Simulated assay, not measured.
Amino acid sequence: MDHLACFTPADLPSTNPAALLDGYRWHLLAQGDSWFSTAAARLGAHANLLQELVFKQRAMAINCAGQGEALSHMVDLESAPDFVRLLTGQDAPVWDGLLLSVGGNDLIEAARTPAHTPGQDPTPAGLIPLHLRLLRHQTEWGAPSQGVARYFSEPGWQTYADYLRTNIRHLLSLRDQGPSAGKPVFMHCYAVPMPRPAASEGSGPWLYPTLKAYNVPSADWAAVSRLMVMHLAQLLKSLAADQENFPGLHVFDSTAVPLALAAPGSTGISGDWHNEIHLNHSGSFKISRAWSEHIERVLSGEPAVPAPAPKLRGRGR
């Protein structure tokens, strides 16, 4: 098994870009949010999923995710000219597949939308409309019999789901405008983070202050986090099942990979997590090794059955 060879757009020779692809069976183009980030601090934490992908046949990827460590909108393609050029440009290579990390950071950012616009009326009359946020103000909570769903804004979720659905469809249309038309697009779901005061250098925490601001009881924080991540997983899997409107989309259910949860209240590395929303080496290893099998089965034309969770050995110890 060989690790995925990861390069950036800057590594492509200007005179003969295809030369970098020689010697590899699979050629992949990657774009995504902070789970694909090439920032030095992220790689030092072994938290880039691409670095832990392994294949039976040699594979390489051009990773356009960039150096950013902060939350990023993967679907903001105006800030991703290299990805668009390498996908649709006149001299773009034919990629065997695309690797996308989509929706996780957008979900976190949507959850962070406050109940009130800063500086505006803090009374219930001054609330931001429910369809523009994922959490409900305390005055809007449902009955306790609803469980943690009482805190969740279904109208806000529909807004987010429509946004993500539209942008994924746009990404697939870009694929079909270039020489890689019809090639498989691989996406992953996300793991369920524990809301806790664990920041990265210069940013975060993310969910922890949000749930505090919304006065959600701390005993329910983990379940609220799970509710949101599972909503996203179900959305992504439903898109992959709709091959008429999302042709060639393949989604790996990362929520099915057992991970060690971070300890509530912990402020640093805990379990399989580097900080509140990013995996550490062991977490990346577990998800990436399972995702690798899913990807290679599709590339090889085999049925993409769910891969079992890998045992920790070798680089995963």
Score class of each variant (00 low, 15 high):
residue 99 L to P: 04
residue 100 L to C: 07
residue 100 L to T: 04
residue 101 S to V: 01
residue 102 V to M: 06
residue 103 G to E: 03
residue 104 G to D: 03
residue 106 D to Y: 05
residue 106 D to Q: 03
residue 113 T to P: 11
residue 114 P to C: 03
residue 114 P to V: 03
residue 118 P to R: 09
residue 120 Q to C: 07
residue 120 Q to D: 08
residue 124 P to R: 13
residue 125 A to F: 09
residue 125 A to K: 13
residue 127 L to W: 11
residue 129 P to I: 02
residue 131 H to K: 06
residue 131 H to Y: 10
residue 132 L to Q: 15
residue 135 L to Q: 12
residue 135 L to E: 13
residue 137 H to C: 14
residue 145 S to A: 13
residue 146 Q to F: 06
residue 147 G to T: 07
residue 147 G to A: 01
residue 149 A to N: 13
residue 155 P to I: 09
residue 156 G to T: 04
residue 156 G to V: 05
residue 157 W to N: 01
residue 158 Q to K: 14
residue 159 T to K: 11
residue 160 Y to H: 04
residue 160 Y to I: 08
residue 161 A to D: 14
residue 162 D to W: 08
residue 163 Y to S: 10
residue 163 Y to A: 02
residue 164 L to G: 02
residue 166 T to G: 01
residue 166 T to P: 00
residue 172 L to Q: 01
residue 172 L to V: 06
residue 173 S to K: 12
residue 173 S to A: 14
residue 173 S to F: 09
residue 174 L to Y: 01
residue 176 D to W: 04
residue 177 Q to G: 09
residue 178 G to P: 01
residue 180 S to D: 05
residue 183 K to S: 13
residue 185 V to S: 06
residue 186 F to R: 03
residue 186 F to C: 05
residue 187 M to V: 10
residue 190 Y to H: 06
residue 190 Y to D: 06
residue 190 Y to S: 07
residue 193 P to V: 05
residue 194 M to T: 14
residue 197 P to A: 09
residue 199 A to Y: 02
residue 199 A to I: 02
residue 203 S to C: 12
residue 204 G to F: 00
residue 205 P to C: 10
residue 205 P to T: 00
residue 206 W to C: 12
residue 206 W to K: 10
residue 208 Y to F: 15
residue 208 Y to E: 13
residue 209 P to L: 00
residue 209 P to Q: 05
residue 209 P to N: 10
residue 211 L to F: 15
residue 214 Y to S: 14
residue 215 N to K: 15
residue 216 V to W: 14
residue 217 P to N: 15
residue 217 P to M: 00
residue 218 S to C: 12
residue 219 A to F: 04
residue 220 D to P: 06
residue 220 D to F: 00
residue 221 W to Y: 09
residue 222 A to V: 07
residue 222 A to P: 06
residue 223 A to T: 11
residue 226 R to H: 02
residue 228 M to R: 09
residue 229 V to Q: 13
residue 230 M to S: 12
residue 233 A to F: 06
residue 235 L to Q: 07
residue 236 L to S: 00
residue 236 L to Y: 06
residue 238 S to G: 09
residue 239 L to E: 07
